[in-house]
């Protein structure tokens, strides 16, 4: 049976406190579907990291999520400055976050590495000046 559920979210680039609403909503839906808790946790962490990045670096954007019986596909798109060197950005501890963000406890340079760690498949498409698109898959 081919069945899927789609959800779209707008992520504000202004309000820090709203980051995490989309991942929290998806988390609760997956729990209600009876998805294995380990997979739910992976999705919640990977997606939250992505949302935070969209707020800190991307100035907000859109998330679309597709839930399939055996996996979840997350597509996070922002219209920010883009990433100049993706390999460098993927290194643990590398961060371009400004000081005021670091003082809030963010900007440790673990966002992208954690997204890779907690997803089963991850691809970044980005060019300077054109924004960033992150594609993640977590298998159930």
């Amino acid at each position: 049976m081919s069945s899927s559920l789609r959800f779209e979210y707008q992520v504000s680039g202004e309000d820090f406190t709203l980051a995490g609403e989309a991942s929290s909503d998806i988390k609760n839906k997956l729990k209600q579907m009876g998805v294995d808790p380990t997979a739910v946790r992976k999705v919640a962490i990977a997606m939250y990291e992505g949302e935070i990045n969209m707020v800190i670096h991307g100035g907000g954007g859109e998330i679309s999520v597709e839930i399939l019986p055996d996996r979840i596909i997350m597509e996070l798109v922002d219209h920010g400055p883009g990433i100049a060197d993706i390999d460098l950005a993927m290194q643990e501890g590398y961060s371009t976050a400004p000081d005021q963000i670091r003082s809030l406890g963010f900007g440790a340079g673990m966002g992208l590495p954690n997204m890779k760690k907690y997803s089963d498949e991850m691809n970044i498409f980005s060019a300077v000046g054109e924004g960033t698109r992150v594609h993640m898959v977590v298998n159930f």
Binding site: S3, K31, G34
Partner: peptide
Amino acid sequence: TYEPVYNLGNNLAESMENLKTVE
């Protein structure tokens, strides 16, 4: 042990269909 009382169906496929209806 975890008691998944909030599940919408007896299995993933059923829960997914039910979640669709909820939406």
